Amino acid sequence: MKTLVVGASGATGKLLVEQLLGAGQTVKVIVRSTSNIPDVWESNDNITVIKDDNITNIKVNEMAEHLKDCESVASCLGHNLSLKGIYGKPRQLVTDTVKVLCEAILKNASEMPTKFVLMNTAGNSNRDLNEPVSFGQKIVIGLLRLFLPPHPDNEKAADYLRVKIGQENPFIEWVAVRPDGLIDVEMVTDYSVNASPTRSALFDPGKTSRINVANFMSQLTIHDTIWNRWKGKMPVVYNKILV
């Protein structure tokens, strides 16, 4: 199986690539020419490195070519935690990329549906389930939508899959993975996967190690039983042991 990974140079994206390679998969990555990626990627026959300094400028036809031999797509894209990354352009980095990827998949119209795994956030509700949100959290989320562009970007990206692609698309199946407070840990540990948050992402956040997110995303692409359990859903991942 071959997976195209966007956001592969980020903290979680690199770990996802390593998890896929460790499982014997082949990978394509789209990264900036200035991205800091492991040297071994350039010489590994199981990785194809595509360099593009602005992924949002990639047109549908070009993306369709990148995806022609891929059975799955994973997005670990996010905004850099800097003033430019948060408030500069492109403000809809994740959403715009999700749209182009989906349009490219639809253009290719493969006989088998392509798996699309989106890294999202536990701070984004799954409106399909009418998840309970406290009044206080609704107020804070409303402020985040107004003043923190990455949050509505994450919401719109998941909503594009949830509403526009939906549950019955013959060419795209999707899962939006929602980690809670991200932390760095060297090894995969026990983690739980839940249909909805079991705690408030704002007022009582849990912890999720990036490597556990990467492991779950890789397992989704590799194992059909896990995929079939979560496709069309927005599972929330927590570390079982707080580290």
Rank of each mutant, 00 (worst) to 15 (best):
G166R: 13
R145S: 10
S110Q: 15
H151N: 05
K115A: 08
P90V: 01
Q167V: 07
M119D: 00
M112W: 04
I141L: 15
C102V: 11
L101P: 07
A109R: 03
A109K: 13
G142R: 02
R178P: 00
N126S: 10
S125M: 10
I86W: 13
L182H: 02
E111A: 12
E168H: 14
D159H: 11
V140W: 12
A122R: 00
G88R: 06
Y87R: 07
I165T: 14
N154G: 05
N124F: 10
F135S: 07
G136F: 13
D184N: 15
D159E: 14
E168M: 13
K156F: 06
V177S: 00
L182N: 06
D96T: 12
Y87L: 12
D180T: 12
K156Y: 08
F135G: 08
N126C: 14
N169P: 04
V163W: 08
R91F: 11
P149D: 01
K138Y: 09
F116I: 13
K107T: 05
G85S: 11
A104M: 05
Q167P: 00
K115S: 09
A157V: 12
L118Y: 08
P132F: 10
D153T: 03
P170M: 06
V140A: 15
K164L: 04
V133C: 12
L118Q: 00
A109P: 02
I105H: 01
Q137C: 11
F135L: 13
V117P: 00
T121L: 09
K107E: 12
L148A: 13
D180C: 04
N169D: 15
N154I: 06
A158L: 13
N120I: 12
